[in-house]
């Protein structure tokens, strides 16, 4: 390698940038600061962790609590039943999430219709979101799973389907509002551009507004699905045995609360992938919006 003296350096040749003294000092300072921050974080975490462990395990009742909440043998014995219950949760979640998303989208679209002809449709859709967002889920569940079969109509679906319907109705109300917020967040100039091309209102919604709106509200939609995941277990109030109900039965047999802890851990494990997807979608949409 021959060294080129600065005087003969042509501006066209790409020159390696050599950091100035000031820049090197700044970089060194920032490195020291980073090292310090990491050390401080590690130390404070260790201190807090130790304190917590000492406080819990040193508590006067720790041995009794450990025996009644964290018994490994009881957890092993209860696992098959709790897992069987969890399988019901998973299946119900899959069906209810799809149902509630579709219902929510439909209601949101109905609420955006303009014109006097659609007034009753709009009013019904608005009434629905008001009612089912205000009504406690447990009451909807009781009405649908205990009240409706009481009518003794022909071809009554099983209790599990009615319970799922209660979940879909309740969560559909929340999701409808999320979808509506997304639709209304699309700038009117996008509608003007689409309509000026000759697209009809429906085509504009389908090809221009909804694809953008759904992308924008994907994080809050998924957030509601995570919440739904915990609430699907409430169908056990009407009979079907979900993970929490299975844990309750096991607890009643052994007078030990470990099955509840087991069910709780399984729920968290189930939620982690969904939450991770939500975070990833949120991050991606934030990047897309900032990258102009």
């Amino acid at each position: 390698m021959s060294r080129v003296s600065p005087h003969h350096d042509s501006p066209a040749s790409p020159r390696r940038h050599v950091a100035s003294t000031a820049q090197r000092q700044r970089a060194a300072y920032r490195r020291r600061q980073t090292t310090r921050s990491v050390l401080v974080a590690a130390a404070s975490t260790a201190v807090l962790g130790t304190l917590l462990v000492v406080a819990v395990t040193g508590a006067p009742g720790w041995d009794r609590v450990r025996r009644s909440f964290l018994d490994p043998q009881i957890a092993r014995d209860a696992l098959p039943d709790v897992l069987a219950g969890l399988w019901l949760n998973v299946r119900l979640l899959a069906c209810c999430a799809v149902g509630a998303l579709l219902l929510g989208l439909l209601i949101a679209l109905l609420r955006t219709l303009r014109g006097p002809v659609f007034f009753p449709v709009r009013a019904l859709a608005a009434g629905y979101t008001y009612t089912f967002r205000g009504l406690p889920l447990i009451i909807v569940l009781y009405v649908l799973t205990l009240g409706v079969p009481g009518l003794r109509l022909q071809g009554m679906p099983p209790v599990l389907v009615l319970g799922g319907l209660a979940l879909v109705l309740t969560y559909g109300g929340y999701l409808a509002e999320v979808f509506r917020a997304g639709i209304e967040s699309i700038h009117p100039s996008q509608l003007a551009a689409a309509r000026s091309l000759g697209l009809t209102y429906r085509q504009t919604m389908r090809h221009v507004v909804l694809p953008q709106a759904v992308r924008r509200v994907a994080p809050p939609l998924l957030n509601d699905v995570v919440a739904l995941q915990k609430d699907v277990g409430l169908v056990s109030l009407a009979g079907p045995i979900d993970a929490v109900r299975a844990a309750q039965i096991a607890t009643a047999q052994t007078f030990n609360y470990t099955p509840y802890i087991l069910a709780g851990v399984l729920f968290v494990l189930l939620a982690i992938p969904l939450i991770a997807v939500t975070d990833w979608v949120t991050l991606r949409s934030a990047r897309r919006q900032s990258g102009g």
Binding site: S189, Q190, A193, A194, S196, L199, V208, Q212
Partner: peptide, 26 residues
């Protein structure tokens, strides 16, 4: 409207569609 072309000050391209899809939509 399909017989009248309109271009706006703020372009109003559809950000979720590629250039080709923007042009072929109508």
């Amino acid at each position: 409207r399909r017989r009248i072309g309109m271009v706006f000050q703020s372009y109003n391209l559809f950000p979720h569609l590629s250039v080709l899809d923007n042009v072929t939509l109508a």
